[in-house]
Amino acid sequence: MALPSDYAPKFQDYARPQMLVTTEWLAEHLEDPGLVVAESDEDVLLYETGHIPGAVKLDWHTELNDPVTRDYVDGAGFARLMSLKGISRDTTLVLYGDRNNWWAAYALWVCTLFGHPDLRLLDGGRAKWIAEGRRMSTDLPQRPRTDYPVFDRDDAAFRAFREQVAAHLGQPLIDVRSPGEYTGELLHMPDYPQEGAVRGGHIPGARNVPWSRAAADDGTFRTRKELEAIYQDEAGLRPDDDVVVYCRIGERSSHTWFVLHHLLGHPRVRNYDGSWTEWGNSVRVPIRSGETP
């Protein structure tokens, strides 16, 4: 049974207001049956240092990815994972995490591929919850195991593969990496490990809009008006465009995918999770370096 939406005024301007909840809403509904809160962070131990009471942990590295093939888990693997976490198909799943919900948005995007019906992000994520002095806990929740049904992953609507990106050249692409990675000056994120791309630069035609520009200082999403100014006025996207977003392995671009699809309402937005670690290593694909899209 789905929980009621959060009717916070700010959300009403977004294309799908039901995709977000405020910290106030979550605090009020924390005990409701039918709700599971999941924390997804960059740091695999951050959850253990304290989390929203009752929240389960969902790790992108060790749980959402297939351990061998570079791909996400399959339908059976996802069903197993959800069952283990005590999530049912009709659960309202609220995701939150560190770094402006970077990894929470990634987890939400992966859950979307399996069509989980009710997914929401906590606006402002872990940092806002803590900044407001709300309760944290180190207790591990003991949720009864569920029997989540097996749904095949459907990549068609929201995921793009390299061949599809090659066929998409000439249509809108958004590169959400830092300016240095976009121009080719850096082969990895500033202050982050080299993850092995042999060429620097971007996919020809891609406009550079670093993902974190969609977040305000307190980690919440910018207002619809502010987002339109960034993605439509500045980057030139039109509401009916077919857009592909990418970064390095598809995590930062999940955040932008969420913004373009759910907040601005672009009907067709695909995340290219192969991203630069695939494109920048591929033989004979076109690459552009420098600031020119």
Binding site: V44, H61, T62, P67, P193, E195
Partner: peptide, 14 residues
């Protein structure tokens, strides 16, 4: 390895 992921463990080797 399986709890933290090989990518993260690389940090300690470095």
């Amino acid at each position: 390895r399986d709890l933290v992921s090989p990518l993260r463990l690389r940090g300690m080797a470095a």
